[in-house]
C-alpha cells in the first residue's frame, strides 16, 4: 500500500514531491484533540491503545506527560494538547494513546478521541503554505475529506456515527510525525 511508504519518507516528500503525487491516495488516521480534528499518516501509527497507568517524570519537558509501559518497554508519552496548544478534555473513556514510530524512538501521543481512517487523494490535500508563514512546524497540510467517500474502520451504525463526527470537523489538520516527535537538543 502506498501508505506504507510514507513512514520512511522525509516531510519534504509529503509536502508534494512527484513521488507522492504518483502514489495518489494516502491513508490518514483522524483523531480529536480538544475541539480540533487532526490526522497523522496511518503508516506511522503502530498501535492505538487505551491509556495505561502513567508515571510522572519530574522535570521532564513540559509536553511530556510521563512514561508508560508498552509490553515492558518504557515509552515516553507526549501530551498533544500541550504540544499543539489546544484546550483538551480530561482523560476519560475515549482517551487513547497513539503509538507513533518515527525515527529513533517510539513514542506515545495522548489524544482525546480516535475518529477514523481517511483515504485522501491529492486533490484533497492542501499544503501547509496556504496557511501562511505562521503555521507551526508540525503541520504539513490541510486535508478536506469531503470530496471522496470516507472509509471508516468499522461498518454499520457506529461507522455512520463516526462519519457524522468527522463531517462536523471536515477539515483535517495533517500533522508531520517527524517534526512532531523531534526533540530539541540543547547540546
Amino acid at each position: 500500500m502506498s501508505g506504507d511508504r510514507l513512514a520512511s519518507v522525509a516531510p519534504g516528500v509529503l509536502r508534494g514531491s512527484s513521488r507522492v503525487e504518483q502514489a495518489g491516495v494516502r491513508e490518514f488516521l483522524a483523531f480529536m484533540v480538544g475541539s480540533e480534528c487532526y490526522a497523522l499518516p496511518l503508516s506511522c501509527v503502530r498501535e492505538i491503545m487505551r491509556v495505561p497507568p502513567i508515571a510522572e517524570v519530574p522535570r521532564a519537558p513540559a509536553d511530556v506527560l510521563g512514561i508508560i509501559s508498552v509490553r515492558g518497554k518504557v515509552t515516553t508519552l507526549l501530551d498533544l494538547r500541550k504540544k499543539l496548544d489546544v484546550q483538551g478534555t480530561p482523560i476519560g473513556g475515549r482517551t487513547r494513546v497513539l503509538l507513533v514510530d518515527q525515527g529513533e524512538e517510539t513514542m506515545g501521543l495522548l489524544c482525546d478521541r480516535v475518529l477514523q481512517v481517511h483515504r485522501l487523494g491529492e486533490d484533497e490535500v492542501e499544503l501547509a503554505s496556504v496557511l501562511g508563514n505562521e503555521t507551526s512546524s508540525y503541520v504539513m497540510g490541510i486535508g478536506r475529506p469531503g470530496q471522496r467517500k470516507a472509509q471508516g474502520p468499522k461498518s454499520g451504525s457506529k461507522r455512520e456515527a463516526r462519519q457524522a463526527a468527522a463531517n462536523a470537523h471536515d477539515i483535517l489538520i495533517l500533522l508531520d510525525p517527524i517534526a512532531l516527535l523531534k526533540r530539541q537538543s540543547h547540546a
Binding site: P52, P53, A55, V57, P58, R59, A60, P61, V64, I67, I68, S69, G72, V74, T75, T76, E104, E105, M107, R183, H186
Partner: peptide, 21 residues
C-alpha cells in the same frame, strides 16, 4: 527513552508487573 535522557536525578524506570512504572 532518548527523549528523556537529559532528565537529572532519575536513572530509569522499572515495571512492577501491573503495567505500573
Amino acid at each position: 527513552g532518548r527523549s528523556l535522557s537529559q532528565v537529572h536525578g532519575v536513572s530509569g524506570a522499572t515495571d512492577l508487573g501491573d503495567q505500573r512504572l
